[in-house]
Amino acid sequence: MTLSTLLQHSLTGISLGGAYALIAIGYTMVYGILRMINFAHGDIFMMAGYFMIFSMAVVPWWVSILLVCVLTIILGVTVERAAYKPIRSAPRMSIMISAIGVSYLLQNLATYLFTALPRAYPEIPILKKIFHIGSISSSLVTFVTPVLTVLLAMGLMFLINHTKIGMAMRAVSKDMETAQLMGIKINNTISTTFVIGSFLAAIGSILYFTDRMSVTPFSGTLPGLKCFIAAVLGGIGSIPGAVVGGFIIGICETLLVAFGYSTYSDAFTFILLIIILLCRPTGLFGEKMIDKV
């Protein structure tokens, strides 16, 4: 393998990793606050893909990007209000089953509404412009994705560390009851988390599907699981961790495919998960948590 092909593959990997990182942030934030795996997050990401297809058919691309973000946020918050809020105090297993139920519902709904056949993802003309640097050529989306990811993550870090709502989020994730006693509106804070997570999933879905060209009702499942693993790898609850984890998984996966092990690229991610959980359960950047009796 020559240096330029290796570079080319790394570039693709970084771009994929950027999209993964954006979705992983959604997982890590929800887990940080509610201590649950939002199994439906991957499907919300898939629905964002469909929203883009239908809005691009009607309005120009810059309006549809806005529209997709708004619709995805509405979907995310609706899911939280309808399926997670009523059983917030139930045992952990029920919450997880509810999340799986939502994921099941969204997949079946997408199959029902849009059929199981892959739908072509519309091209956003600017993102598809081809660039050449030396012998490497790539479309603009490949360069935009990592930059946008890092910028968004930095913005989010600012939001969490330096604003009032960010402080509320940190408080709720530390101790929900005490936060409530201090006058923090828990429901609003949790909904805000879902707004941010869904917004990033919408952006991630635009970047991810622009490279992949088609959406099916099941195209959210595997990326969803991988992004959760990325979040675990980086340390659940930590935003820079999720970004780094997303990039690591994206790059490793692309390189494995490039070296001809494409059937094992999915398996690799899960093996990575098991190794991480056994050797360093708090992930690369996670805080140490002590189990209280």
């Binding site: 649950m36 795996i37 952990r92 997880m96 693993i229 959980l277």
Partner: peptide, 11 residues
């Protein structure tokens, strides 16, 4: 709990 779920799913 949830880590076990995702690890077995991965398996």
């Amino acid at each position: 709990s949830d880590y076990l779920a995702i690890a077995t799913l991965g398996f």
